Amino acid sequence: MIVTTAGRPDAQSVALVEEAAERLQVPVVERKKRSIPKLQDIYQSDVLVAGKDRYSFYKRGSEEPFFFHPNSATYRLKRIVKGEVDPLVAAAGLVPGDSFLDCTLGLGSDAIIAASCVGADGRVEGIEADAVVAFLTETGLRRFPIEFPLLQEAMERIEVIHSEAVEFLKSCPSDSRDVVFLDPMFTTPIEESSNFETLREIGASYRLTDEWVAEALRVCRRRVVLKDHYESPMFERFGFVQQIRPYTKVHYGVLEK
């Protein structure tokens, strides 16, 4: 991977380039008015672009850039404010002060909802195995421009951890997190946005395993929650009690301690 500026770089985008190059240990390439496909062809590489207010990642062979956006967390949080019950919050049984470990952070939409519910006295950690996704999500959570204070506060409270999920779980003491959350994205796609599809292309791909579920159950104090397509065989295979939600593709399963 290489990192470069947008077409018309300014001081801020240059600073963002330097930050990404240092954090990800990748070379900086001058843009010189060259297109992204041209840079991909010349350097035979993925390209990370530092714009004025965000990073955009262009994977070779992908037509769409990947960038951080809170996505569904925005309207989900607005529904919570109106008094509606979020299905993740209900499945996890989250209350203020809880600790929530998201083993498959991605863009962090679920972690944002959890962070808002557990509040300032709670703790939300998000594990992301892919270095680029972890970097984009971490910087996006801190810097995404949004005029929704409740959402912004929740985003800033999330701790991003670049690690492979099972290995991180093995390092955790038993009964150390109230809820452990799994959304491995290996079955039928749930989200339909182009940005989510790009995430599926560039992010780490996993299959849920006996070891993963066992470690998650060991680490949690109350329950493990699985998010997946409603037709996923993983609910039954690993003993999750599937919570049926009519008229939606997204279902949650609960495995009690």
Rank of each mutant, 00 (worst) to 15 (best):
209 T>V: 14
209 T>D: 15
209 T>E: 14
210 D>P: 01
210 D>H: 10
210 D>A: 11
210 D>F: 02
211 E>W: 03
211 E>M: 08
211 E>N: 11
211 E>H: 06
211 E>Y: 05
211 E>F: 02
211 E>R: 11
212 W>F: 14
212 W>M: 15
212 W>I: 03
212 W>C: 13
213 V>D: 06
214 A>K: 11
214 A>F: 00
214 A>Y: 00
214 A>P: 03
215 E>Q: 15
215 E>T: 07
215 E>V: 07
215 E>L: 12
215 E>H: 11
215 E>I: 08
215 E>Y: 07
216 A>H: 03
217 L>A: 15
217 L>S: 15
217 L>N: 12
217 L>P: 00
218 R>P: 08
218 R>G: 08
218 R>L: 07
218 R>Q: 09
218 R>V: 03
219 V>W: 01
219 V>S: 07
219 V>R: 01
219 V>M: 09
220 C>G: 04
220 C>A: 13
222 R>Q: 13
222 R>G: 06
222 R>S: 13
222 R>P: 06
223 R>E: 14
223 R>S: 14
223 R>N: 12
224 V>P: 05
224 V>I: 09
224 V>G: 09
224 V>R: 05
225 V>W: 00
225 V>Y: 01
225 V>M: 08
226 L>G: 07
226 L>K: 04
226 L>F: 05
226 L>E: 12
226 L>Q: 09
227 K>I: 04
227 K>R: 14
227 K>C: 08
227 K>D: 10
227 K>W: 05
227 K>N: 10
228 D>V: 01
228 D>N: 13
228 D>C: 05
228 D>I: 01
229 H>Q: 06
229 H>Y: 12
229 H>N: 11
229 H>K: 03
229 H>P: 03
230 Y>G: 01
230 Y>H: 10
230 Y>A: 03
230 Y>T: 02
230 Y>P: 00
230 Y>M: 12
230 Y>R: 07
231 E>T: 12
231 E>H: 07
231 E>C: 05
231 E>R: 13
231 E>V: 02
231 E>I: 02
231 E>Y: 02
232 S>V: 05
232 S>H: 05
232 S>F: 02
232 S>D: 13
232 S>M: 06
233 P>M: 07
233 P>F: 01
234 M>D: 15
234 M>I: 04
234 M>Q: 15
235 F>M: 05
235 F>A: 06
236 E>L: 11
236 E>H: 08
236 E>P: 05
236 E>R: 12
236 E>C: 06
236 E>M: 10
236 E>W: 04
237 R>Q: 15
237 R>P: 07
237 R>K: 14
237 R>E: 15
237 R>N: 08
238 F>Y: 15
238 F>A: 08
238 F>C: 09
238 F>T: 04
238 F>S: 04
238 F>K: 02
238 F>E: 10
238 F>Q: 06
